[in-house]
Amino acid sequence: MSNTILVVDDDQNICELIKMYLEDDFNVEIANDGRDIQGKLRNTSPILVILDVMLPVKNGWELCREIRKEWDIPIIMLTAKGDETDKVLGLELGADDYITKPFSPRELTARVKAVLRRSSSGGGNAQIIRFPGLVLDIESRRVKVNGEPVELTPKEFELLFLMASNSGRVFSRESLLEKIWGYDFDGDTRAVDSQIKRLRKKLEILPDNHSYIHTVWGIGYKFEVQP
């Protein structure tokens, strides 16, 4: 199994610093721009991508969107921008975490390991969760709606698994932030709303399909199968 982390950043000093701190636990591959990101992913088969926002050729937002079209890989965005809107945009595009420069290499290492733990949670137990029109295979992290496979990002899968495993339970937005993004994530609850919106769109692919995720006004969301 691959143990590679792909770092995409045009600052060579940053790349070397990240590599120095991660190479005891991971194989670190470096790319200095956004050219042929799909080729780099195929060649390195990374378990996680650290992606700078301000890149030549293609910026980090474009690359994050491009990766998410075909790859179910955790992504940590790395940027000098600290504006809250930028953080929310990255999460809306499918990023799993967001770190602002300048950063502590030890914090980055901790976040990398935390994201990898969350993305692989549940993988050790062969388990299938079934609802009318919906099947979650926990071991393979695959989802089918009416028998057809649906591609989910790691965060979308984690949200669905958490809520489907607790059908009928109401989760506040703050609770979902803590459980899915981690207690140290300092974004706001709009990230949850954006992920829920994307997840609903993927699950409710047919006009007459069941609905699964419902808004509890003033509180948050719950999973419940409704015709």
Score class of each variant (00 low, 15 high):
184 D>V: 10
194 S>A: 15
192 V>P: 03
189 T>D: 06
193 D>H: 08
184 D>F: 10
219 I>C: 00
187 G>Q: 00
187 G>W: 01
206 L>K: 15
182 G>M: 03
204 E>S: 06
208 D>T: 14
195 Q>V: 05
188 D>M: 04
190 R>K: 15
214 H>P: 01
219 I>T: 12
206 L>D: 12
210 H>W: 14
193 D>A: 08
220 G>M: 00
198 R>T: 12
185 F>I: 02
214 H>C: 07
219 I>H: 09
194 S>Q: 12
208 D>K: 13
189 T>W: 03
194 S>F: 14
203 L>P: 01
218 G>C: 10
213 I>H: 07
189 T>V: 09
215 T>K: 15
222 K>C: 05
214 H>V: 08
202 K>R: 13
193 D>W: 02
193 D>E: 13
182 G>S: 07
197 K>D: 13
193 D>S: 14
191 A>V: 05
189 T>L: 04
197 K>P: 05
193 D>F: 02
182 G>P: 00
207 P>M: 09
209 N>F: 11
207 P>L: 08
211 S>V: 10
214 H>A: 07
187 G>E: 01
198 R>N: 15
196 I>K: 03
190 R>G: 01
186 D>H: 09
198 R>H: 15
207 P>W: 07
217 W>I: 12
215 T>E: 13
204 E>H: 07
220 G>Q: 04
197 K>L: 14
214 H>L: 11
184 D>H: 10
195 Q>Y: 00
202 K>T: 07
214 H>D: 04
200 R>K: 15
219 I>N: 08
203 L>I: 05
188 D>G: 06
217 W>Y: 12
207 P>I: 06
199 L>T: 05
202 K>G: 05
211 S>C: 11
215 T>C: 11
203 L>G: 04
207 P>C: 09
192 V>N: 03
204 E>M: 07
210 H>M: 11
193 D>I: 04
205 I>C: 10
208 D>V: 08
183 Y>F: 12
191 A>M: 02
198 R>K: 15
209 N>M: 12
221 Y>E: 01
209 N>P: 06
196 I>N: 01
195 Q>H: 10
182 G>R: 04
186 D>C: 04
217 W>K: 14
191 A>Y: 02
202 K>L: 14
193 D>Y: 09
216 V>D: 09
205 I>Q: 13
206 L>C: 10
208 D>G: 08
221 Y>L: 03
198 R>Q: 15
219 I>P: 01
215 T>Q: 10
197 K>Y: 14
191 A>K: 02
211 S>L: 11
198 R>L: 15
195 Q>K: 08
208 D>W: 12
187 G>A: 07
221 Y>R: 00
216 V>P: 04
182 G>W: 00
191 A>R: 01
210 H>D: 08
200 R>S: 05
200 R>P: 00
207 P>Q: 08
202 K>S: 07
208 D>S: 15
183 Y>V: 12
202 K>P: 00
212 Y>T: 06
210 H>T: 08
